[in-house]
Design a protein around this nucleic acid. Structure first.
Length: 202
DNA sequence: CGCTTTTGACCAGCGC
DNA sequence: GCGCTGGTCAAAAGCG
């Protein structure tokens, strides 16, 4: 089929998975929690159950709890390793909650809205977006947290098969470690650097 | 003029 | 089988 395989998650090219990047235009953006959809991967320990602060996330695992051999901190590369496996075996979906006034966070990709739906038990509508790049089937859903409207819940489905059309942030090393706790939100590490898409560097 | 957004309709899956 | 719900489609409108 396509001779352009998806980028390796281990390159930590976050926007290739649709992660919002730290945007200087929107300094209020703050990456708080990574959540990964229930993936039937036995190596992943369910970290969020009925005690989840938001019932919507009962089937999600906090990514920062993935690294069972390294409690207290998490390696993002480890997390992506899990995600990659999900991708290969069943396709994957990743969701996270961000504290932002903006609903549609700038993740470096162009998205085309194709639907809007009010969901049961939520006062906030859910918006559906599709990557505008031809041939790319990545989708994302965006909705406000029903319990705390300060938070935006973004769910990505699929992997981009192309570079981000805009400037992105990339981690300098594969084994970047982000220390986090249950109470302090994760932020984009300062060690990440601005990086142009590969095609713009030639 | 081309692209995006809006929005009602339609469809599929699921529970009863 | 029926109704509910979530996801998608597609035509019309809006915008640069």
């Amino acid at each position: 089929m396509s001779s352009n395989p998806p980028q390796s998650p281990f390159s930590l090219n976050l926007p290739s998975y649709g992660f919002p990047t730290h945007n200087q235009d929107h300094p209020s953006f703050q990456l708080s929690d990574y959540l990964i959809d229930d993936c039937s991967d036995e190596s992943v320990t369910p970290a969020v159950t009925s005690s989840s602060p938001n019932p919507m996330f009962e089937n999600f695992h906090y990514a920062n709890q993935f690294s069972s051999t390294d409690p207290g901190s998490s390696s993002i590369s480890t997390d992506y390793g899990v995600m990659k496996k999900i991708k290969l075996e069943s396709g994957f979906r990743i969701a996270f909650r961000t504290k932002s006034e903006l609903e549609n966070l700038d993740d470096g990709f162009k998205w085309r809205k194709y639907g809007k739906k009010t969901v049961k038990n939520s006062p906030n509508p859910r918006n559906y977006y599709r990557c505008s790049n031809g041939g790319c089937s990545v989708k994302k859903r965006i909705e406000r947290d029903r319990e705390d409207r300060n938070y935006v819940i973004t769910t990505y489905e699929g992997v981009h098969n192309h570079e981000s059309p805009s400037v992105i942030y990339c981690a300098p090393h594969q084994n970047l470690t982000v220390t986090s706790s249950d109470t302090s939100p994760l932020e984009v590490p300062q060690t990440w650097s601005l990086q142009q898409p590969a095609y713009s560097q030639v």
